[in-house]
Design a protein around this nucleic acid. Sequence first.
DNA 1: TCCAACTACTCAGTGACGCTTAATACCGGT
DNA 2: ACCGGTATTAAGCGTCACTGAGTAGTTGGA
Lengths: 109, 109
Amino acid sequence: MGKQATEMLKGTLEGIVLALLSGRAAYGYEITAWLRDQGFTDIAEGTIYALLIRSEQRGLVDVEKVPSEKGPPRKVYSLNAQGQDYLNEFWRTWSFLSERLEQLREGGR
Amino acid sequence: MGKQATEMLKGTLEGIVLALLSGRAAYGYEITAWLRDQGFTDIAEGTIYALLIRSEQRGLVDVEKVPSEKGPPRKVYSLNAQGQDYLNEFWRTWSFLSERLEQLREGGR
DNA sequence: TCCAACTACTCAGTGACGCTTAATACCGGT
DNA sequence: ACCGGTATTAAGCGTCACTGAGTAGTTGGA
């Protein structure tokens, strides 16, 4: 991904992670690895952790500390009701933006 | 648009404006009005001007001062070759992001 | 045994971007 | 003379992703 990606990810990355969490609970290291797998090769380690902490402070996710077989305990995050509302709102905003952009790309204007 | 829009616009708004300019030259006031028309009702007056100045400083657009029939002279911006390259790169990044998001929305993961 | 590699999380500092708000300026109509 | 629409500029703010460094536990090889 290009250098423009950093700015474009703002706001979107949060939605991506919450969408992932709406499917299943996950912990930071796992999410980072998954994102890398999906092609987000430049996502920095620390970025996801910061994002998760922000989401927790806003009450969008619930956390449970789970001991790991290998390494320090994991903080497993899951989307709660408020987070689901927020995610729905995210999809609405994304749809709006996406439609405008697609319209601009084809036909132009 | 919701409150999430502000963050999601980062990086994207620039692409939107450059895409518009790739179709035809335009000046700040006009662009702002057009965006409002397109549903970006919350776009602040000053935002577009700042964006245009940034784009100019990066050499993505050319500027021409044109007297207006009604009001102060207009600064008419048009996309140059470097700006077109940048715009192409923008579309690549957008496509990537868009595909991931669409994939996440359907099926999930 | 020691050390490298992998797992897993934390935190302080940085830069870019869009937003807010206010100011400046030119014009036409009343 | 004043007001509203046109048109641009600029200073200060908050949020987010990135950087880079640090802490810690586990596993496997030299």
